[in-house]
Design a protein around this nucleic acid. Structure first.
Lengths: 192, 192, 192, 192
DNA sequence: CATGAATGAGACTTCATTCAT
DNA sequence: TATGAATGAAGTCTCATTCAT
């Protein structure tokens, strides 16, 4: 039932946008009574939150698969592949991602979205720590934080303004360069 | 009157957030009749839009002052100062900026906010074009686009998660590094 | 509930007129929440429309009873009785009928009222067709149309200006004469 | 000024209908300040009333011209011409007439419209009185009243449902027959 | 007289939520 | 547990009218 409701909410969000995503509409699309919605979700916001979380889980799952192979790739390859994985993940449900990003009122909900993105921070930080010797950074914690913000910012822009670019390799190159040269500013690198 | 209304909207936005920012409340805080609100603004959204635009103008004005002195600074200094100006601009009304970023329903309004930020694109692009010989970039247009996204992303994160960092020099260093090394990946740079 | 709402609307219409017939007032008089009004009627107009339709049904039902006995009366009697039935029907709720006629904004609603009256046209036409041999008319379709207009016009005038006359036989005689002599202009008739 | 305002109201009524006929819109179309409207008319209703009255005057004026020649025509001709004059009068501003009839809320305003039509009553009555010897009627007062109602009813129907018929002679024949045979039920008449 | 900015009561309508069945 | 009719607070917006200039 929870699944049915989250599914229905996603569908409504996609088809009609956040404004038109009323609890009654969700119940209708789910083929369930409105009462049942409140049996499983305390309020409207939690419905949307659940959609976000499920979406985020899917993104992560998609990335994990892609990244598991990178165990001992070199730095440049690792970054390149990781960003590729992120871009690919965006392609899973770009329209949903965009609606979530654009239309959902942030208080509460978007906050949560950022928290979800924040989950990456420790992972990235740990990774930076591990490769510290190859990197020109002094504060892995801040570096991770800055990188996540920067990549998130570019991804958000793509989604909102140039969704078509998700299909191109273009962005992956640029992001790789952004990240790599930030991490190794003094290193002369061969062009990828 | 327009001024009074925009002012009142800003105040309500700051004090009560977007959800509680109703037209009646704005009128009340402005000390005018609700009718007067609709004499000058066609609907609620346009009120918030006006706040955004005024805010953006203030940001830009603040930056222009700060940047006018950079006419013939060297590349590294120019980037450093430009980012310093942006960070300082954020300090003007960080809470307003945050509310705008976090709570305003995006379709329509946030779209406009991005458009406003998009104004920078041609400027940045032109600047990159001008300094092309010193830069290791091949496509100034995409580079400008990526940089704006990245910086925007980091700034948004600061505002939402670490507003205190706006006061520190920390961020400026990191952003400078992010931008500079992206622009000149192969150049050995002295530590700033 | 639908019944309760139509009933309440009728009451408000009668007591306060169309202008004062607001959805909130109807809900209040019906003793229900305003939300319930919109659960069953899409908007204000449809409420009034429902009143009209119910009223019209009542008129027709009243007439049907009265007319069922006329199956094989002679022409003059048939016309006389039919008009009597119409006049009597008006007496059912003359004040409601008047409010509907006088105050309801016509576009949409009054249009519908005329449509409802237009239902008579085919019946009258068929009847004229049936008795064609006794009548001096060449175009039953136009004749029906003219007669309905004429009778409607007189009835409207009675309602608005001389509601008292509904109680007298006076009008029935005059209308009968109007209709009969129109249908049989060349026939010498004994005074009814 | 009064003239300008009545003119503007007429224009708005025709172009946008009664609902959209707001006082501010009238002022705008008249090229005058809203304040000036209230200098000459106490409220919105009186504006519409003035339009009605001017329209009615025009109808009457048109009819007077047409009827002045009938001084000593025979009965049948007189009726025929009079109805022709009425039909022709409707052609003056059929759309305005229709808006007035259909859309204007009657309380107050439509009442007045009927009063204006009621002006005919004494005239018709007097005329019936004059020709009493040729007519088979006993109560000229009621007869006049009924005839006006009947003709009004047919005219209203034409306007609303078959405005095209105003151009045909068809209606004039039928109305003439309606009126004449009502007035002279026992008289064998040659077909007009 | 003319102006038109300002007024504000109040209309219609939505939608998250409850609760008796 | 599921239902869904009922709720009603609250929101946006309109427009006839006023009154100081």
């Amino acid at each position: 039932m929870v699944e049915v409701l989250v599914e229905a909410t996603t569908r409504v969000l996609l088809k009609d946008g956040y404004e038109a995503c009323t609890t009654n509409r969700v119940a209708e699309v789910a083929g369930v009574s409105i009462g049942s919605v409140y049996q499983y979700f305390p309020d409207k916001e939690s419905l949307v939150l659940a959609v976000m979380e499920r979406h985020q889980e899917q993104l992560q799952a998609a990335m994990v698969v892609r990244l598991s192979e990178l165990a001992n790739a070199d730095l440049a390859t690792a970054v390149h592949e990781m960003l590729g994985a992120m871009l690919e993940a965006q392609r899973l449900q770009p329209r949903l991602h965009r609606v979530l990003l654009e239309q959902v009122p942030r208080i509460g909900a978007l906050r949560r979205l950022h928290e979800l993105n924040g989950q990456y921070a420790p992972l990235v930080e740990a990774w930076l720590e591990t490769h510290r010797d190859q990197l020109g950074i002094t504060n892995p914690s801040v570096a991770a934080w800055v990188l996540i913000g920067a990549v998130e910012g570019v991804l958000a822009r793509v989604l909102m303004e140039k969704p078509g670019w998700l299909e191109l390799g273009l962005l992956q190159e640029h992001l790789t360069r952004l990240v790599l040269s930030y991490l190794q500013p003094n290193v002369r690198r061969s062009k990828r």
